[in-house]
Write a protein that binds this DNA or RNA. Sequence first.
DNA 1: ATGGTCGATCGTCGA
Length: 262
Amino acid sequence: MKITTWNINGVKARLETALAYLKQEAPDVVCLQEIKSVDEGFPREAFQDLGYNVETHGQKGFNGVALLSKLPLEDVTRGLPGDDGDPQARWIEALVPFERQMVRVVSLYLPNGNPIGTEKFAYKLAWLARMKRHVTHLLADETPLVLAGDYNVIPEPQDAKRPEAWVNDALFQPESRRAYRALLNLGLTDATRACHPEPGLYTFWDYQAGAFQRNDGIRIDHMLLSGNAATLLQSSGVDKFTRAAEKPSDHVPVWIELSSQH
DNA sequence: ATGGTCGATCGTCGA
């Protein structure tokens, strides 16, 4: 089973780009972030025509996440549990049939948190703490867990072409990185890093100042796997070629292949 | 040091 995560930076602006990619790569499950659409405005029929079941958690203007799956999605949860008053649409989880069992898949869009020293950064850290609490609950279940999305965290210096350029950015703050490590320390595996230990692998390049042409990127889109999901991990990849196409997102798709066969 | 580019929406914020 191939699972892909992609921050598409607006589903309306990216519709033709996204459909062409999905037609070509045909992942079984797709986790989308930054759909920037309300649920009623999401072009679900276009994805259904490619054979996907569609579940969205959107809001007006910003944020918004979605799950697409060729097999039916069950037990859909919208919103990160732990704060019913949070209006920001950044989390959707569901169960997906896999072989003779189920896998729990999450599409998440972690807060950016810039600028540091503001309520936006405090919200990012609070969100990370809330995510850790919820993931702890999810891990108490034996269902394999895949946490896919835009984490807005540069885990290590090797995850940036120019780490020195990010020292005052919320994505590379010690507090952000510490909270991300605390997630990993629950027993999660960074699937991309597990398959590709070498530095220089990025998932985001700013639109500005020719960042992609200079390969001035960062790795902030991650797939974290529970232990029993990591056992199923066969391969992973980052589809950098999409960043060079017409009307690209500033993020590229990240994928994993899961199977119990060797 | 500043501005540089996109998307949603239509002046300006968020990234």
